[in-house]
Design a protein around this nucleic acid. Sequence first.
DNA 1: AACATCTAGCTAAGGATTATA
DNA 2: TATATAATCCTTAGCTAGATG
Length: 876
Amino acid sequence: MRTWASSASWATRTRTHMPSGRRTPARTATTAASAPTPSPDCPTRRTTGSRRAASGAATTALRIRAGCSISSPSIAESQGKRIQEPAYRSCGKFGNGGKLAGKFAAGGKLGGKLGGKYGGKLAQALARRRALAAMSHSGPPGLAAPLSCKSRDGAVELQILCQPETQHRARYQTEGSRGAVKDNSGNGFPVVKLVGYDKPAVLQVFIGTDTGRVAPHMFYQACRVSGKNSTPCKERKDDGTVVIEIDLEPGKNWQVTCDCVGILKERNVDVEHRFGETLGGAAHAARGKKKSTRCRMVFRTEILDAAGQPETLQVCSTQIICTQPPGVPEVCRKSLVSCPASGGLELYLLGKNFLKETRVVFRLQQDGAKWEEEVVPDKEFLQQTHLVCCVPPYQRADIAETVCVQLFVRSGGKASEPHAFYYTPAPPAPAPLHCTPHPAHAHAPHAGEERPLPMCWGVGGMGALMPPPQTPTRRSSIIVPDPHSPLGLKSEVADESSQHSLLEGADGEDKPLPDELRIMDLRLKSEVISRDAQQVALGYDMKLSPGAPAPPEQPSSLVSFTQTLQAIQNQVQTDKMVESVTAAIFNTDPATQMYVDQPILTPMDSMRQLMSSKAAMDTDMKALGPELMMADGLRAPEPALLGYEAGAGGRDDGFNPFGAMTKMEASHIKQRLARQSAHMEALVEDAMKATAAMLPADAAKLDELVNSRVDDHLSGASGSPAAAPLPDMLLSPTATGPCLVMPPAGAPDELMMMPDMPSSVKTPPAAVKSMILNAAAEILTSDSTMNALVTSAINTANILSTESDASPPAEPAAEAPLSAMSQAVSQAVTQAVSQAVSHAVSQAVSQEMTAPVQGLTAMSDQDLLSYINPSTFDQV
DNA sequence: AACATCTAGCTAAGGATTATA
DNA sequence: TATATAATCCTTAGCTAGATG
């Protein structure tokens, strides 16, 4: 067996034998003796461990270290009296005193450890007193005594050749080893050298306060880190402070590499508890103070001068931050992938580890030329997982071609992976209707430039939807169509590709966009928008299609509730659309059965089971998950495979997600969907009623919602092997094929088309309906696979539709027949919608069973804002 | 006996989550 | 109540020693 390993981290070793929860580090007798004194009174842990440690302390109490005058019998005898004298104890007259050490450990440490921030004046006074006492006593000075790094005659000096790293995450006793403190390069370890001395000596290392006079740190201790090749060392306790001792050998030129010293964090509660016994009110007062999480390594050694008199040299390292370092910032989604060179649009980023000082960086590195712009996020919307900032103008506003730059986030000295971001030439027409100007720019449009219109929040049957309350000028930005995309399409960049593609093309040259970047998003077709005004009026596109320019009315504070309700209704109508499509696809009607491939029936069966048993449904869904996943091959169908519905009038008439379908198929769907309309209306009404008790704004829910989305995205909750942009074509029929899904009023009652559905679900209460709608929308908006499929399909359709244009498609046109294309598209949509709706129903039933209805009624304004427009964010 | 491969256990992290101030 | 920080929990890459063929 390895001796190095067996003597190493006891915490890790014992941890594996501990039950979960607060583990008790059951140290071995040998290690306990050298471990930091635990709190015998700690009520929460270290029960046996502390007892062992106490007994271990008893054994070490009599240990005599070099240079320590503990051997004096008189001292030992008078221990009981003198131990309560901090100054005396701090002078290193003796170590822990057996039982007394346990009981009065705090007093022993007090003088030495209160020298830092913690304890304030009390600690400083004690430290001064201790230092004076130290100087007045013979023998080696205490750990808090002020010492020089040079000998009195100046001949000998203790030097730090290599400083420790600035941050080293200390470990808790319940944790495994976190290794030795590295050097500031991160590759080696601190190096200390004794210069001008010719006799063997011992280097002592302990953890001291971070500022001011050197004194043992209250909350941090040195701990021995034993590696196979680490420098041999000893660990002992001096007055409650762990001191690591390493030999300074002539053979190593009196130089020591401190590769065996780690930092251990003592729990605040333990420390305070100890001090509480002896300090009483002072400890209580100190408890409220901010505790330092920094420390310094203190090196000292004892030498003999020319006269044979002992002298202690001491040197202190730079500060070490002992907390867990913040994680690397990560951008998961962004609301824009491109922006006119003039900048000014509002950019939302979803991600992780956004700290307060986070900056969004736009950078171009190309052929030596470098441009970089750092943007400070909106303080108001800077959270750990999301932020809002303003896209800065590009270095030149008169670019003729799209420029790809890197977009990343700097936070905590670290940078996220770069994402591709495209600056496009200034659009000849006014800014796209769906662009969101940043407030800083919104009020100062360029001369001759129309002020960007606010995003249309939906123009449903209830009339134009007003922007969300209290955020009059801050609207969700929508991905800007990129007229300079190779296909003349907006490039919806999946994060997956943006990270990698950009890295590959980091030179910043205006190369043709990678294939992944050609995935376009139908919702961004501005040309569609203008033609879809009528469909917009139906209220299906409150998220994405501005449609007829809504009057840029500045919302007052009075309109909030009404606006919110309207926003909700639009969302519900969008959801309605989802359900319509779903119902059409899931319908057992032979006319639509053609769209249902084999995987579809299975989830439907599962859904029925779910209605009667939540548990059963969960199981089924888990089992069905793989089936519902799309093969990668489906994700990016051959571009040229997809036809485009000529009946829609070609590309200019808007994008049709079902463009690959035959007209007959489309007609069937239309009819089917039309019959759903009445039910949809009923659902909307129910959902609206559910919002009647709308709660006051709760900003925290925005975070929650955003977090959940990020989590979904990160965890791949959709079960998709590859993430993709949002399925807005389904949620925004006006941008994709409104004629298909326009539900006329007065349709028959065929909701969900689930013949065997239990009655309770067949006619669910409003709350359940609302939940289903919400969940469906949620899933659909986060179902990256479905979106990738659909988006790719539509992209392909556009490729075909634009083949007549001057720009040829980058991908060679495939020779596959149109039917194959049609099937690919319909299968993709079918699968995705199937999964989404199944899951939605599952969620709704689960919620109904386990929790009160939350849904729309409990959403804050910001919640709603985010909810209503989830497609603001791109996806991986 | 020497060598290659496999396996188990461990360290040294890093990150996430939960508890607490 | 919201936020920041502390404390704990979980996971993993890489390394090493021992077992095995």
